[in-house]
Amino acid sequence: MKPLHLVPDDVNVPFLKFRKIFYIVSLAMVLVSVGLFLTKGLNFGIDFRGGILVEIKTDGPADIGALRDNLGSLGLGDVSIQEFGEPDDVLIQLQRQDGDEQAQMAALATVTKALGDDVTIRRSELVGPKVGDELKEAGVYSVAISLLLIMIYIWFRFEWQFAVASVVALLHDVLITIGFFVITGVQFDLATLAAVLTVAGYSINDTVVVFDRIREYLRKFRKMDIPDLLDLSINSTLSRTTMTSFTTLLALIALFVFGGEAIRGFTMALIFGIMIGTYSSICVASPLLMVLRLRRKIPEGEETQEAGA
């Protein structure tokens, strides 16, 4: 049996020719994401906002309307009630209560009491104001630190142009993934933050593979024009880039469909982020090297000979 190739061996797409289009598309996506993030904002889960979450299982399909009337009349502020995966599974979320941690505790007790004994409480979470703020802070730190560490690593291993290009591509992926959350309104909690960080790691992984090849070809084809060389590098790694993204997506789709409601947002972030990451390492990171005026490292004395090569 002849193996099936996702990408033909002799693929030759002139990516660099389209780079202006990629820049415009990417810039537009980033701007929309940042704009929406600043205006509409993320739908933060209780991990970061503080508040209460209760997941219940009812006898038979849940009567969301009745639950809403029941819990809405308790005077605990905004109560969000939604079906969670199954008709008899309901997720109840309460906003952070005014006052200190004691107030949150009291509200949780009130809700459990109002729900009565007819429903099974499958999960209850309470995040007080203090912990919510701390988690938010830790989240910001973790994103910043991992970006910084990755940048330092790339800078050590490659020329500075590669480091800058990879971090720009990385920020691109992270921002657009966040934009995805703003647009879809999917809740942003600790798990989705972890997904965003994983996307960062994954996206850099893809970029590094292409960069490795560029570096190799820079040494090998000393007379080739940089744009041609970039195109050749992207094309010769294209099969691998798509293969790995594809296998990862296969696994994630299984997780998305069968992994249960609780990690659906997390999986969604990963699926979206990995697609964006693949796009950016092919269409953004490598072309950016041109903008950053990547040159061969020219040994002393050979300057005139090699210049413009």
Binding site: S142, S146, L149, A194, L197, T198, G201, I204
Partner: peptide, 11 residues
């Protein structure tokens, strides 16, 4: 793999 590992360690 090292870059992904960095992200995992920070997490």
């Amino acid at each position: 793999n090292l870059t992904t590992l960095i992200a995992a360690l920070v997490l």
